[in-house]
Amino acid sequence: MQEGFTRKEKLVGAFLLVLVIFTVVTLLAIAQGKGWGVTQTTYLVKFKQGYNLRPGSLVKMFNAEIGKVSDLRITTAGGLPQVQVTIKIYKKYNYLIHQDSVAEVVSPTIIGSEYLEISPGSSGYPQIEPYGTIPSRERQSLTEQLAELVNRETIDKVKLTVANIAQLSEQLKNDEKVFLAVVNHANQVLVSLTEAKGTMGLLLMQKDLYTKMVQSLGHLDQFLVEAKNLTGDFRPSAKDLQVFTKSITQEIEPLKAIVANIKAGSEELPDLVEAATETARSGKEVMDAIKANPLIRLTAPKGARSRSIHVEPRSLP
């Protein structure tokens, strides 16, 4: 009897094992892509209509995907039909869904499909429990928006504006003569100016003034050129100054060190003086002791003795 597997059997076994591993890996990849493993929380949103939403439509917040629409169902509440949208939000975003959050259907501008936008709630409001209803805002259609624009009040305002324009036109007709007089006067003023009459006319039309101005500007140009040259001369000096300043800074460093040394030395000075005084005192004591010796005392010169001063009155005549 033959024991163990044949070579063919081993090959088949290995093939099956590879197949099983491949299948498992593929399944895992799909599950991750589908979000099967991700924990989600279910909420409800109610609209008057479905706005082209369908299961699998995205649920977004700040334009970022936070979940998906899982189901749409037409229900009746208070005798009125409505569309109940069931959404599943990733659990990690639960903390953003509060009582003041608002769900709204957003339509794409050109391409793409509708999605549900939920605004984040503030921390002052309690969180919505799972399977709770998130408040919603209906999307306005174009006709509704137009109807909002063209209402009675707006029409009244337009009527009033037209009436005002008509009234203004009438007033302009009445003030035509005054207006013409003003225009004539302005014309006269302009003529005077062109004829170099008056201060303004002189200023505007006299060529001398213009020439003088041109000359002044020329002088100014010259001055600016000279100033520029002068600034150019300053540059090397400024560079020298920089070098000078740098060298001073370098010189200051050893000076600082010297001052620091002097300071350190001066701190030791009182001790030194004290030590010197002490030494002098002890020296004097030694000398006193030597002087006290009878043999020394006999030979030593007699020290001076202090006396009371007698102020002799040698008065001058």
Binding site: E285, A289, I290, A292, N293, P294, L295
Partner: peptide, 13 residues
């Protein structure tokens, strides 16, 4: 003499 010197120097201050 040395004794006198020593005693003298060592005299009580």
């Amino acid at each position: 003499m040395l004794a006198v010197l020593v005693v003298g120097c060592a005299a009580k201050p």
